[in-house]
Design a protein around this nucleic acid. Structure first.
Lengths: 231, 231
DNA sequence: TCCCATTTGTACGTATGTATG
DNA sequence: CCATACATACGTACAAATGGG
């Protein structure tokens, strides 16, 4: 009985032996043929893997292997420790999104701008050792910077601002919380809903100004990152 | 489209209005008739409620309501904001556990003590406005303090140490992470597994000493607490 | 103990919607 | 625009647990 559990265990074993994180399982139909069951039974089996955080579903693409189970057990020892204060100036980030958007009410409050205005949204993903660790959404209040910022592709955003626009950003406030990840965060960070993300919100001013120049929200994988505060 | 999501929302609303924890939902077949959908669609809807911790399935009996979802979604506006640096000196904490324990390997490393030694463990719970927000485990390396510390019942542990033993603790390091809550944390903080906790680990030295005097691990409800860092 | 009605759990089949490349 | 692959929804059947007679 409970065919799906057997299939789930078999798939887990296959993943351990033959798959690497980021690779895709064979299509559900193909697995169904192989195990001589209905496709729904395979889906039920994969549901288990998703619930256990081994696999992520991607509609239209396939079911992606998230991590090797042995990586999972390393846990505390495999932690990557970042400095809380270097948020926004991370050197090895790549740009995922870069666009002008109309400001919504929450962002308008954070950036202290009017509702009708456009703002710059840049989303970056930080990987180290090939593993996605942290996704950052930068919101910049001054749309005039767009003509320059649209060419930002990788590296440190704050460095880029300093070099191209001669802007010096200064941290005004830092707020810390934790959340279950959004669907987008699950996809980018290659995690499942059961892994919380740590969220750091910062507001940055232009040096010598009261205006909030940048508001950023970073989300880090809590299974791989721990932040330290310098005293 | 996505009928099951509408049904799920409708059921959540029904639960809020008409059901109390421990009661059972109508049978799936009955719900299917009421919503004029297939039983599987109702099951998929209930899957959502189960995933959100509102309902528990009992084969042969029915689907039991777990709790009222009042607390489930307090909006972002209801957040309580704490200062990161006042950890360990929180004024309104009550003691849950207070005991001498043999040190384990992890604690021995944090406190930089030998494996055989006994250490003091004090667990406190911080409530504000009647709502549990944060549980803190204090580990103190010097068992000689036990004769005094065993009388600590409430208030600020650091104040108590200063007043009774004339000890001045100084923060050495602060580390931040996030986790799914343990069963004990679920109980103390009155949350479900789906609510992450933010975890803050600190090491404190005696002023003028190299010895780690206290190691503390605090876990805060991420749905109700956000920390700020002063710059 | 056994039977039986009820209710949830598993498995199969089929069809169509939706995202990806 | 198309083929592929996952997502949703319908239907049917039977297994397994529960509780009462």
């Amino acid at each position: 009985m409970r065919i799906y559990l057997n299939i789930s265990r078999q798939l887990e074993s296959d993943i351990r032996q033959y798959f690497r994180p980021g690779e895709y399982l064979p299509p559900e139909m193909q697995l169904a043929e192989r195990f001589r069951v209905n496709r729904h039974t395979v889906r039920r089996a994969i549901d288990e893997l998703v619930a256990n955080g081994l696999v992520q579903r991607h509609q239209g693409k396939g079911n992606m292997v998230l991590r090797q189970p042995h990586l999972y057990r390393l846990h505390d020892g495999a932690h990557f420790t970042g400095n809380l204060l270097e948020q926004g100036s991370l050197p090895s980030s790549q740009v995922i999104k870069s666009r002008l958007i109309p400001v919504n009410s929450k962002l308008a409050m954070e950036l202290q701008v009017e509702q009708e205005q456009k703002i710059i949204h840049i989303q970056t993903l930080r990987k180290t050792e090939g593993i996605p660790r942290c996704v950052i959404n930068h919101y910049l209040s001054n749309p005039d910077w767009w003509s320059v910022l649209r060419h930002f592709r990788q590296g440190s955003l704050h460095d880029f601002l300093r070099k191209t626009l001669e802007l010096e950003l200064k941290r005004k406030s830092t707020r810390l919380s934790a959340r279950a990840p959004s669907n987008e965060e699950c996809r980018l960070l290659q995690i499942n809903k059961s892994v919380p993300v740590m969220r750091i919100k910062t507001r940055n001013q232009l040096r010598g100004s009261d205006q909030i120049a940048e508001f950023s929200v970073s989300s880090s994988r809590s299974d791989l990152i721990e932040y330290v505060v310098e005293h």
